[in-house]
Design a protein around this nucleic acid. Sequence first.
DNA 1: GAGTTTGAAACT
DNA 2: CAGTTTCAAACTC
Length: 933
Amino acid sequence: MDYHESTIASAMDATETVPVQDSPVFSYISKLSPIQPVKEPAVSQGFTRLNSPPTVFTSPRLNPHGLSSSLKSSQFPPLPSTQLSGQDGGCWISITAADRSGKLDDGLGSGLNTCTEKGLDSSRLVDDQTESSIGCADRFLDDAVYMDSFNSNVSADSSLKYFDDIDQTPVRVNNSKESAGKLEKTHGARGNNKDASVDRRAIEINMMSRDGVIRADQGAKFESNLSENLAITNKHPEKFMTENSEAGQTGHVDDSSYLLPKSIEIYEGNKSSVETTGALDEPVQNEVQSNPMAAQPRGLHVSCLHFEDAQQKIITNRHAQNPSGIENSSRILTSSADREGPKSISLETPSTPISQIGMTQQMVYPRNRGNYSIKVPTPLGIGLHLNSVVSTTQVGAGETIIVKSSEKDTLSIWDEQQVTSLSSHLSENSKNSSYLSVLESILGIPDDSRHNNDYASVAANSATSVSTYNVKPLDNSMVCNPIEDQSTPVNKRKSNTGNADDAEEFKRSSPKRKRQAYKKKTSESNDDYSCKLCNCKKSKCLKLYCDCFAAGIYCAEPCSCQGCFNRPEYEDTVLETRQQIGSRNPLAFAPKIVQNNEDETQLSKSSIRHKRGCNCKKSMCLKKYCECYQAKVGCSDGCRCEGCKNVYGQKGECGVNKDVGMQCTDETTDGSSGEKLEMVESGNVLYHTELCNPHNLTPLTPSFQYSDQGKGASKAWFSSGKYFQSPESGPTFGAPCVRFPRSPRNLDNRDMISESSKEILDLDSFDNELDYHKAEAVNDFSFGHHGPSNMEHLAGKPNAREWESNLKVQPFSGSGHFSSASSLRWRVSPITPMAQFSGTKLPQAVDYYNDLHNIMEDDTPEILKGTPNPPNTVKVRSPNKKRVSPPHGHLRELGSRSSEGLRSARKFILQAVPSFPPLTPCVESKNGGQKKT
DNA sequence: GAGTTTGAAACT
DNA sequence: CAGTTTCAAACTC
């Protein structure tokens, strides 16, 4: 696999290391964390009461534990990171990155991350809290574009040291040339990690890694790899160890230019100590070698964060590269990596901030509406803020921190004074209040704007605060302009690290109040797709009645559900239930909002419809009772509504080609099923797009065609959180929200598709995206066949022009993954800023692909593996029937067009592919459907 | 905050 | 597959 070959070139040159420790920034950072990174168990306890978002395995909501801890920690800044680790086992992660030139790339707060590992026996309360946090994180991740990439171009040496022991031995992930390709296993494998916490940690790590990532476009790989590695390690420590030890030295130092995380330190408790040093890639590579797809799934959700990070990094880098004078970029919040090298700035801050960082990012993750390329989700907080702040430090004279507002992509330079002020504030306030408050104060954010009373405000606020403010650059004066609160629902759900008072207030608030606040905030922020909150009383949150469950996320603390089983601790139950439901209705967890476009040029709001349509009788589709209305999409012919007056489009007004469009078609592919699938054979490619996360609808632009050639379905994230999904598989989407836990047990879990079925598309944002990608043919999104050329694609024969136009995409092709068994094609509009995609989207797509690939490898019969892609693209039509029939009908059609063998294979695939929403933000490739074919 | 309405999901 | 029941969100008061 090229992937194997591709290695992360450590951009760091030890010799070039900047004496960070001596730098003002370092001092600043040191000041930031009042708490010494003592590893002590306590995290869970302290946070137990905190309301945190539910944890979802990976998606919309990050691992509860990690995030929760973060949130909690944020709420309790004073708590030392060590405390966090405690019984539950906390982990403290720091990442340091530097470019070869010795420049430190910093992401504030990036280096700090606290994750709490929830004990298996942790009380539910604790779980809830942690879950919430995690959930948020997951969500955040989902939004983020999947960064994992196979970009062979990016290579870096990395060494990963993993310490997992009761003593909270720090785990370090080092990425350095010297250590490149070397993986040491210093300690025995830890085999006791089987709980969800593992994933969480992985997530946390990923998040951290994100910060560590320097270059968005290239760093992605590193991050992804790192994430994957970490994830793998967490999940399968023993495997990780083995693989690493066995893995050859693949580390290559290719692009020195790429900034790479230099070191990541993780402190974890309650685990047998394990230290592994080696190329970060290796673990993944190993897995890939044995099973190319293996590594992918694990890191999926994590990757989301990467994207955002990458973007931030890009901005930062640009700025740094900018003659403006800021040449040395250093991370403000980097871990104590100094140990590893002079370049790294260690910022040992309280675990709280770290956690928050993770949280913040998720929370703040912006919905890319406009400029896709630059828009970066805003990191938040000092934990959050710092994170959100991408800073470049001018080591030397005065410390200059470049603060970027994710929202406006503006960079601000904090001069020494400002930094000092910030540091001072942090030092002074960290003990009593959240960093957020401090930042807010520093930033001059009005008090009334600082903390919202609502649920989200507590935690999310902090996130929002910084990110929400647009900092004006270069004037040395921080000008913070309140920006629309973009905190994501997830954020909202998560308690933020706001000041202690807020936390207390939040804790005291009744669930209902929280809920209301959350909803209010959600509605205000227009985060329709935000994490769901439920109030289930009888369904145990294990039925689709439950919004959370339906959305593929765990219930969060804000939920008012009773007897809830939709929690990480009941993962097995949840998965089982989901599988049951999925078996009954494969599309049950599929996004409900589908974009149908036959005509590339007509990608528009009109093409977005509710997959199944509504059945309103009295609401006239003017109230949220109507799913179409709720999703802010027009009703389609598929709706059975009466007296439709949907303001977004009435029934019969199908905006898109009615003749072809699925939304207007009542045909039922499967007679038995309500789901309508349309096969598109025409040159027009039907792209079945589930736009789960309108806000995140990012660029549709990078469309890719994927031909699994029988090897697997492909999932692609075109944009953060956005997926395209095959009708069968349903979910694609990139919901910012969660995901269900992937079952550690089987591959199927990987296929779980995050569902944002309830996510609402933001038409406006969608349009923006469209504009952004206008050049891009919509058709490309479809995996269907476009004719001979398409067939070529399917055959794995690259379209030179396409690839050329999208150099950034090429890495994929370059990676053996696509070249061999399958071809994944991205079609990017020439005009599309590649920066957007570089290292980010594609990687995600790749990851997804890999994931699928793994699945196929593992589960797919040989016969299927060789199966060429079906010539037809499957399109989902909004079913007229409530119940969606399984794709069988679809398959049948496909099958009719294909050999019997294929047919059987398809069926097999369907079975193999869980209907669950992916744990990670991934797009379920149409191939999934095609595979079936 | 309680009660009602609504329509999806689940069940038969 | 249609009809009914269950359920929880949305809505109203």
